[in-house]
Write a protein that binds this DNA or RNA. Structure first.
Lengths: 176, 176
DNA sequence: TACTTTGTTTAGTACATACTAAACAAAGGT
DNA sequence: ACCTTTGTTTAGTATGTACTAAACAAAGTA
């Protein structure tokens, strides 16, 4: 492999690393994914250590996180004790996986927070600050409606087993 | 205002703060927005200081950031030197604003990175590692296609001057 | 059983960043 | 002109976290 090609590849890898940290993921995750993505076939943890410059520990944890997100997947080889991983090349599949992951974690908690607040407000005895209470209920209901819409969207996307450019184009038709 | 109502409101504010930091924004931003959102009418910086417990400096910078994102907006009062801010209650408007903001910052840089790498690869002289080069081009093109799709989507949304539940429902029809 | 190979976990470190406190700037009011 | 009010900027601090280094675990091999 020529020096030119290697330079281009490294530049790309650095770009993915920055992007990773911008989106709130560890820098190392971006590096690891980029290395796997620009490599045909699977790589072992040791190979990832040498290619990324990260330590075994970092590679171990970040690789697991990437697999959890569905951005990479194990590619086991028989009669080999090593763990091999390959990049997921179907981005739409990865996106669905990421959405599903994030969905179950924190987004639901936010939705629940609003729901709970509303329920508590409804159960409040009528008192002097009825106007204030009504105002709060109104605002929270607006927020809940918005959350519900987002919720429906992400659920629809994650349920979709085929999401590709074709689907995107159809959506675009509506939005324009 | 009864103690009950105050408790519920505070609980909600804390929830928004957590959500804020989960999505990569400072905790204080979530606090400030929640305080404004649960208050009818506008608030001055000083009032925000007392209500959030943050210092003047933090309120100043975070409020500006929120305004930049379109999540709150100035609500000036004539014959008053103070700056007043109110929450943006139209979430879809806010979403469009946030998308536009993020779009111009880092997403474009990632897209450019891929584009550049591809251009450099195309301009490479044919050499021994032609197979490797072709492989890289293929992968990067796939990534570019995906980025283009996302790009089109966000652009479409940000251009939209009316995005509401109705539009979301239409999109849902396609996705199901 | 001991040794090697592989991956995980943990203790510690370095770094980024959101915040506080205080100096500063700007603009009105007296 | 001077003081007060309001908001911004800056220097310093504290907290979280991604990483390194090294101990540990597990499982095959001699």
């Amino acid at each position: 492999m020529g020096p030119q090609l290697e330079t281009i590849r490294n530049h790309f890898i650095e770009g993915m690393s920055s992007m990773s940290q911008f989106w709130g993921f560890p820098r190392g995750m971006g590096t690891l994914f980029a290395v796997l993505f620009t490599h045909p076939g699977a790589l072992s943890l040791d190979e990832l250590v040498t290619r990324t410059g990260l330590t075994k520990g970092a590679v171990s944890t970040n690789v697991r996180a990437l697999a959890r997100l569905g951005l990479i997947h194990p590619a086991p080889r028989m009669a080999d004790r090593k763990d091999y991983y390959a990049a997921e090349t179907d981005f739409y599949k990865a996106i669905r996986s990421i959405l599903a992951e994030r969905h179950n974690s924190e987004f639901d908690r936010a939705v629940t927070t609003v729901k709970e607040a509303l329920r508590e407000l409804q159960g409040l005895p009528v008192s002097a600050d009825e106007a204030e209470r009504k105002f709060l209920v109104e605002r929270l209901q607006a927020m809940q409606a918005f959350f519900d819409a987002v919720d429906s969207l992400t659920r629809a996307v994650t349920r979709l087993d085929s999401l590709g450019i074709h689907t995107v184009q159809n959506v675009l038709k509506i939005l324009k």
